[in-house]
Amino acid sequence: MDNRTIEKSAIAGFLDELLETYQVFAPVEREGILGFELLRGSDEIVLNAHNTRQAPKEVFFPRSETLFTFQEGKIISTPPAEKERVVLGIRPCDARSTIVLDKVFDGDDYQDPYYVDRRQNTLLIGFACGDPLSTCFCTAVGGGPFSVDGLDLLWTDLGDRYLVEAITERGEALITDYPQFGQATAQETNRKAVTAAQATEKVSGPSVEGITEKLDGMYDDPFWDELHQKCLGCAACSYLCPTCHCFDIVDEGTVTSGRRVRNWDSCQFALFTHHASGHNPRTSGKERMRQRVMHKFSYFVENFGEIACVGCGRCVRECPVNMDIRAVIEAIGQAGDGSRISDR
């Protein structure tokens, strides 16, 4: 597949045409917050956005989702999405997170029809990160600012234009339909390689080598006694996280009518996995923080062979008490000998 380019001045025209056929989700600033929103017009898109405040996981896994409604004893299914969708401007870390989510919602054992329907119905156009933030650590967890994992197309900013690479056949098919894309020169493709090398060089992060094996023996380590102390027990980290995927299912309504809803849940909440019997398996912040770290770097790896963190840095930037997951990873590297964090 040959590379293409699109001039920045042609993007509005491309979007206008794209919006005729597709629902387009792209970085948009609403009420001062940058997020992946349903694009209402081509002028809304923020092209030079760093990572959005919230991850685009909502496009596939909404914060609250009606699974079905019921009335007078009859169950009414939620209809699947009709229009095909495009996520434009997703960063490589967030694109990699869809692979993590796929393992949960579209795995061998279980396929979630709501999620699968949206995933199959959606193309991902990624924007390479030429200018990663200091809080980004994608390269430390197996990704990179120019990673194409999970993408259908990768666009690289070359100043007045984007280099457009088709990663999948679906991606290739999408751009052949639009006249705004021209043939890329070898020079343009080379420029991308230089930018990619520079950007990758810029990203750093803690080593996760051996972390899963290490955590495997740390369940009862005194490490957890202190790690959680400053954590407030909110869900800012998990709700902004592109890979966190825990949910709770509740029925809303009366006996005769209502709906079954799937809501995001967070392991940091006291209510998380609180049993109907009243028993709570995770009674304090210690167990909850351990769950979050273990799930990302141990249990998920054991279950699916991947770390459930893509290094987007959202939790690093937005934690109200600056609990920095990079520092936690480093501390795990030094822990495990039974000593307390404060002893080191």
Partner: peptide, 25 residues
């Protein structure tokens, strides 16, 4: 409040919010 994602960071950060079980839970 339309931007609220119900992460409860406000409640958790608040020194006056200490109910063993919040009404919303």
């Amino acid at each position: 409040f339309s931007r609220c994602i119900r992460c409860y960071a406000c409640r958790q950060a608040c020194p006056a919010c200490y109910c063993p079980e919040c009404f919303v839970d």
